[in-house]
Each structure stands twice: as C-alpha cells, then as structure tokens.
Computed example of a mutant assay.
Amino acid sequence: MLKHLSGILAVSALFAGTMAIAPMSGTAHAQFVPYSGPYRQPPPPPHTLPETIPPHRGDLHWVPGYWRWSGNGYQWQPGHLSRKPSLRHA
C-alpha cells in the first residue's frame, strides 16, 4: 500500500510542478474585445398598434409613444397628453 501511495504522491507532485512552470514558459496574451452592448443598436421601430388619442382641450396636445432607453434595453413609453408650452415673450 505504501508503494501505491508513494506513486500517487509522485504523480501529483509532477503534475503540480508542471502546472506551476507552464505559465512562466509562455507569454500571456490579452485580447481586447470592444463592448458591443445594446446601446450600439438603434431603437426598435414604433409599435404598429394605433394609440387611442383621448379627447382633450385646446391647451393640451398629444405626444405620441416612443422607445425610451432604460439602462439595459429599450422600453416602450405610450403616448400621453401634455400641456402646450407657453409662447410668452419677455
């Protein structure tokens, strides 16, 4: 049994020594891969479903839906009513 154990220890030591020497014998190569995340992609086309424009007064206008960037992808923002900007001059 002692011969068997010493054989395993010898093979383990040889393997460990080979693993320790291998990185020193070669040159490490780093590869630069630019990030091609979702921010490089254009937003998807607008939704094909028509938006229902609710009835509104004269001081409101309809802002159609659009794709909004949410940090890791685009999210559809539905259309909404908004107040018209005032055109007062000073």
Score class of each variant (00 low, 15 high):
residue 23 P to G: 05
residue 50 P to I: 04
residue 19 M to R: 09
residue 18 T to Q: 06
residue 10 A to R: 02
residue 29 H to C: 05
residue 66 Y to D: 05
residue 58 G to R: 06
residue 65 G to V: 13
residue 27 T to L: 14
residue 30 A to C: 06
residue 2 L to M: 04
residue 13 A to E: 10
residue 6 S to H: 10
residue 8 I to F: 12
residue 63 V to M: 02
residue 12 S to L: 11
residue 2 L to C: 03
residue 79 G to E: 07
residue 21 I to W: 12
residue 56 H to M: 14
residue 63 V to H: 01
residue 73 G to D: 14
residue 71 G to E: 04
residue 42 P to E: 09
residue 86 S to C: 09
residue 88 R to S: 01
residue 28 A to T: 14
residue 52 T to R: 07
residue 64 P to W: 01
residue 35 Y to R: 11
residue 71 G to N: 03
residue 51 E to V: 06
residue 61 H to E: 15
residue 44 P to G: 04
residue 87 L to Q: 03
residue 37 G to Y: 08
residue 60 L to V: 07
residue 54 P to M: 08
residue 17 G to N: 11
residue 62 W to V: 00
residue 18 T to F: 10
residue 11 V to D: 02
residue 67 W to R: 03
residue 7 G to E: 08
residue 40 R to A: 05
residue 51 E to T: 00
residue 53 I to Q: 00
residue 78 P to G: 14
residue 55 P to V: 10
residue 56 H to N: 14
residue 19 M to P: 00
residue 40 R to G: 13
residue 77 Q to Y: 14
residue 84 K to Y: 02
residue 74 Y to C: 04
residue 70 S to N: 13
residue 10 A to N: 00
residue 31 Q to K: 13
residue 84 K to G: 07
residue 37 G to W: 10
residue 84 K to Q: 07
residue 31 Q to N: 05
residue 65 G to M: 03
residue 67 W to S: 06
residue 72 N to C: 08
residue 5 L to M: 12
residue 85 P to N: 02
residue 79 G to L: 09
residue 19 M to H: 11
residue 24 M to D: 11
residue 27 T to V: 15
residue 90 A to Q: 05
residue 88 R to M: 00
residue 3 K to Q: 03
residue 75 Q to G: 02
residue 37 G to A: 07
residue 65 G to A: 09
residue 59 D to S: 07
residue 65 G to D: 10
residue 4 H to D: 11
residue 23 P to V: 14
residue 89 H to F: 02
residue 49 L to S: 12
residue 33 V to A: 12
residue 84 K to T: 04
residue 40 R to D: 01
residue 76 W to S: 01
residue 17 G to C: 07
residue 8 I to T: 03
residue 28 A to K: 15
residue 29 H to L: 14
residue 26 G to E: 13
residue 18 T to E: 02
residue 34 P to S: 05
residue 50 P to A: 07
residue 29 H to E: 15
residue 16 A to K: 09
residue 51 E to G: 01
residue 31 Q to A: 04
residue 49 L to V: 14
residue 83 R to L: 12
residue 15 F to I: 12
residue 12 S to M: 07
residue 62 W to M: 02
residue 68 R to H: 06
residue 76 W to P: 06
residue 45 P to V: 05
residue 61 H to I: 10
residue 36 S to A: 12
residue 57 R to Q: 10
residue 84 K to D: 05
residue 46 P to K: 01
residue 3 K to H: 05
residue 56 H to D: 11
residue 54 P to T: 10
residue 13 A to T: 12
residue 42 P to R: 09
residue 89 H to L: 02
residue 29 H to M: 12
